[in-house]
Amino acid sequence: MLFLGTTIDGLQMGLCFAVLALGVYISYSILDFPDLSVDGTFPLGGVCCTIFMLRLGLPPLLAVFLSFFVGMLAGTVTGLLHVRFRISKLLSGIIVMTALLSVNLALTKLLTQNGYTTTIFSYRSESLEGLFDNTFLERWLGEGTKDYAILIILILIVVVLKIIVDLFLKTKMGYLLRATGDNEKLVVSLGRDAGTYKILGIAIANGFTAVSGALYAQLYTQYDNTSGSGKVVQALASVIIGLAVFSGLRFMKGTTSVIFGSVFYSLCLNYLVLVDSDGIYLKLWNAVMFMLILIFNGKISAFLSRRSRAEKKGGLPHA
């Protein structure tokens, strides 16, 4: 029972962070921009979503939607610092991340002034009626789905977002975005300012990060100012493990790979928590797993692509 619970928790976390992974896929994998501002944008999305719901009384889904634009704003700042003021990629991210720590604290004050506690909202309280308290699934699928309702809604959200990203990357603007990460000179010789598209990409990536933070706040019905720490490492690990493990499978798109990467990573972390119940070593596990992934990255994908090619060959006589 404990194991099943841990698995479901891990899946929920993994899907929640899959949205973050989609964002980091855009910034890190497509634009070749390791964006550290993620650590600040993640809680920013959470606190803004909470404010939208508690202070402004907006519906939960709208609150998530609006968080996207707040995240984009933060990403635009990172992008501008790098493109227009020529600050290095890492430093632009660090500057925005540091600034956001204070911004998030200040925003949290908006909540205390209204008389709510800063960080912890009790489960399914009236004050934070989240996206995940919806009961429409029960009405659709019957009582039995109740335990898995959160999971099903999360899957729906992640799939919809994945499809949106896939479709976007197939538009003209999407092509240009991919070209920007690939070959800036080509974008310039097409008569376009590569910098603008870099800023756009970082903005979108941070939009997804904020959405992930907003979902996280609703999933656990609490907002925590420290929830951002270590998110860069986690997201990068998800993206790298996803692409490393699944890039050998040709039919799988990058977006699908990183979602699986995120779920896999969260599951592993959750099982580790079973062993280390204090959670003291959580960040250490985080770092160690990331390290192992980086070390074995090439080997896993080489192994898998060999297997998938061998299977293809083996399958030929039947075809």
């Binding site: 976007f168 197939k170 003209k172 603007m173 999407g174 690939d182 070959n183 097409l190 008569g191 376009r192």
Partner: peptide, 26 residues
Amino acid sequence: TCPTLTILENLSLADNKGRSYGLARG
């Protein structure tokens, strides 16, 4: 060229030079 784009995608990208790169199909 863009290494991660296919030939078709590369040509489409170039064919659109001078026009807007919006949300239309690539």
